[in-house]
C-alpha cells in the first residue's frame, strides 16, 4: 500500500536547512515545531578530508503506524496511498501519538495546542505538486520517490 518516500541524495545535500524552513513556512508553523530535520555527523577524516554524513529525517509514514490506533479521537489517519496525517479538527493535543511513535515524530504546535507532523504536503500532492521540502530543495538533493510493487 505504501506509495511515497522522500529520498535524500546526500552527495548533493549541503545541509543548508532549507527544507526545514520550506516546510515550516508552508505549514505556517510558529517557533518550536519542526516537521523535518537535516543533521550532520561530526566531521571525520575520510581519505584525508574532514567529511560529514548528512541525514534527512521526517515521518516515515509506516505501513502499520503505531500512532494511528492509539489516537483516542481517531484524528490520526492513514490514507490509501500510505500517507499518515492528522485531522486537525479532531485532534485534542493529548500527544499519545508521540508516545506511541518509536521516533517521537508528532510534535505539538504551541499556537493551536494540537499535534502536527509531516503529511508529505498531501494537499500539494493532490494538486499535482511536490512536497515543499522537495519542491524547493536548494540543490535538488531531495526527491519524492513513488514506490512500485514488483
Amino acid at each position: 500500500m505504501k506509495k511515497y518516500m522522500i529520498h535524500l541524495n546526500s552527495r548533493r545535500c549541503i545541509a543548508c536547512h532549507g527544507c526545514e524552513v520550506h516546510c515550516k513556512a508552508n505549514k505556517n508553523l510558529p517557533v518550536g515545531p519542526f516537521l523535518c530535520t537535516v543533521s550532520c555527523t561530526p566531521l571525520k577524516k575520510v581519505g584525508g578530508i574532514p567529511k560529514t554524513e548528512i541525514t534527512f529525517s521526517a515521518c516515515r509514514h509506516c505501513e502499520d503506524p503505531l500512532c494511528v490506533p492509539v489516537c483516542p479521537t481517531d484524528a490520526m489517519l492513514q490514507r490509501r496511498d500510505g500517507i499518515v496525517y492528522i485531522d486537525q479538527e479532531k485532534c485534542i493535543g493529548c500527544m499519545a501519538c508521540t508516545s506511541a511513535c518509536p521516533w517521537e515524530i508528532p510534535v505539538q504546535n504551541p499556537d493551536t495546542g494540537k499535534a502536527v507532523k509531516c503529511d508529505l504536503c498531501m494537499d500539494r500532492l493532490d494538486a499535482g505538486l511536490k512536497p515543499a521540502c522537495v519542491a524547493k530543495c536548494t540543490t535538488h538533493a531531495l526527491k519524492l520517490v513513488t514506490l512500485q510493487s514488483t
Binding site: 543548508c16 532549507g18 520550506h22 519542491a135 524547493k136 536548494t138 540543490t139
Partner: peptide, 13 residues
C-alpha cells in the same frame, strides 16, 4: 527549478 534556500523562504517572516 524551484530551488530556494532557507533565507529565501524566510522572506515571509
Amino acid at each position: 527549478g524551484g530551488a530556494l534556500c532557507a533565507k529565501g523562504t524566510a522572506g515571509v517572516a
